[in-house]
Write a protein that binds this DNA or RNA. Sequence first.
DNA 1: TTTTATCTTGTCAACGTTGTCAAATTGAAT
DNA 2: ATTCAATTTGACAACGTTGACAAGATAAAA
Lengths: 343, 343
Amino acid sequence: MKKPTIKDVAKLAEVSFKTVSRVVNNEESVSEQVRARVQEAIKKLNYQPNHTARLMRKAPFSLAFVYDNPNSHYVIQMQNGIISQCRAKGFELVIHPTDSKSEEVGKELAAMIGSKQIGGVILTPPLSENRELLTYLLNHDAKVVRILSGAEAPDALAPVVYVDDIDAGEKMTQYLLQQGHQQIAFLGYHPAHESSKGRLRGYQLAHDNANISVDRNLIIDGEFTFESGMQMTKRLLAQPKLPTAIFACNDEIAAGAVFMCRLQGYKIPEDISIVGFENSPFSLQTWPPLTTVNQPNVEIAARAAAMVIDMMQDDKNHTVESCGFQLDLVLRDSVCAPNNTPD
Amino acid sequence: MKKPTIKDVAKLAEVSFKTVSRVVNNEESVSEQVRARVQEAIKKLNYQPNHTARLMRKAPFSLAFVYDNPNSHYVIQMQNGIISQCRAKGFELVIHPTDSKSEEVGKELAAMIGSKQIGGVILTPPLSENRELLTYLLNHDAKVVRILSGAEAPDALAPVVYVDDIDAGEKMTQYLLQQGHQQIAFLGYHPAHESSKGRLRGYQLAHDNANISVDRNLIIDGEFTFESGMQMTKRLLAQPKLPTAIFACNDEIAAGAVFMCRLQGYKIPEDISIVGFENSPFSLQTWPPLTTVNQPNVEIAARAAAMVIDMMQDDKNHTVESCGFQLDLVLRDSVCAPNNTPD
DNA sequence: TTTTATCTTGTCAACGTTGTCAAATTGAAT
DNA sequence: ATTCAATTTGACAACGTTGACAAGATAAAA
């Protein structure tokens, strides 16, 4: 049994197929009588308009989510946020994992956009930080929205959803300072990682505001992984002056820190308070559960999707405003006031 | 500047647009001269064939990945496996997260398949376990491939990619037995979780083969989470007879077990060996890294995708064979021979 | 040279929808 | 009744591509 087309419905309802089209698209000028008859026919035949054929006549109805990120949870959250918008507004999502280090990303994306009738693109870090890629895409007249976070104010080439890492880093550090911590280590600064820069900047800012000077020895460089978290913590704990709290640049590092501290016999949070960043599942994959910063990725992605869709639908090319997200702390049990001042 | 169509290319190359189509589709009967001229024109105009219009004439070129799974890493791996096949074979992937508990899943999926010209569907647990959904989809003549794992032999309604949990559970248990463990606890049996049944079955089998009877008290029910892992381990450790090894039903449980053991002062693996299942990032999110079972999700998904594509392309409806995957152990440092026999 | 076979190219319809515009119908006002 | 406007409906082209088939060009055989 073939899939019914609009013409089959028309025949059954004894109207022209154009009228069926009108009913399907909820257009005004159809009498109630006819509308009812057509709707009945639609139901009887179980007719579904052909998305593909539709696309050919109308403006593009697809947007692409381009990413190159090893963090599954992040990607899925993004995806979900975008899909929610797509479903609400009848758009199609094309996911496009790629390799940000490849020379060909630009071409590859342009090709995809061209062939798949894609109207808009959402870029996440680190792809969204690639200025060349962005201009390349803009030159191939794609509508682009970038999701960015970090210390640099984003340029104005295209609308951005900006995550305020500086503010969040500051809030978290402030919180630790308020708890009475004065020796706060910072784990996981990485020059290639924009977010880490922002978070460190906030850390610094909070110290400045409190008139407390930062001990450079407490800032340790490393990767955003559990393994690296353990290594960094080991190095940290080998130093003469012990911190009373650790601000880890993400939850995985924090989990590694928790582990290493325990291995060396420190109690968490009694001996050392530890906080993470991201509110990922990893923040609950340790004990006690980590105080962390919530990144509302689903909302962020939904916002970005709404923006691209807006840009696609808007003919007159009115500029879509960038927007910023402030992050909130998630207080759990990995922090307490410092009891013993380490010597 | 408008997107160039096949006709623009034709005009530039001074041939009919049909000839361009032939060049684009790499058909035989085009003279080298003309082909070169057309290709040049294509390059000059940066022409990309319109995927959408193509779809309208040809057989469906899209397949859907339907899932309802809280495990981001799993979903991403699946997605990647499927995408690899789609790219290789020029297919389009539509991802469709859904709610398996909803009454409407079937209708929802049928609607999606109908409207988006989807030729095939890949189902993962728990959706793939839903017989009703499957028959519903088959009745709406969709091509379906299911990814399944567990203790039940899958029915023959549609081709299946089957993950042999029983065998894997048996292998892992055998390994622990070979290390000299006799008191092996099993954490995370859950009646609603097919995989856990299979793994437990394998655990039982290995004991049977070794002529060792299983102590029912060592089998603890629970969820597939870190939190539950901690709880179960707490219960386990409260029992008079301590195990020398713990077989956790997945890595998160195992990580929880590691944590709880440590909290109670047991050393891993010296006092208690612990193994997980899945080889997820969580298995490295603890210390020591977990011995676990590798689930080659990317390959599994790629296989499933290849199968659906096969079914879609094959007109004569030849039956695609189901296939099974055997899993392999990943030996890391969370296991050693039991030193002290607990009393 | 003519015929035939083969290879290359072109013409046109079709896919399922929406946009444009004209035709038919309705209803109100004269 | 007649006219006019407003509403409802329909005919047809168009979107960018591929498939079926016909036409033209070329090469080989007569």
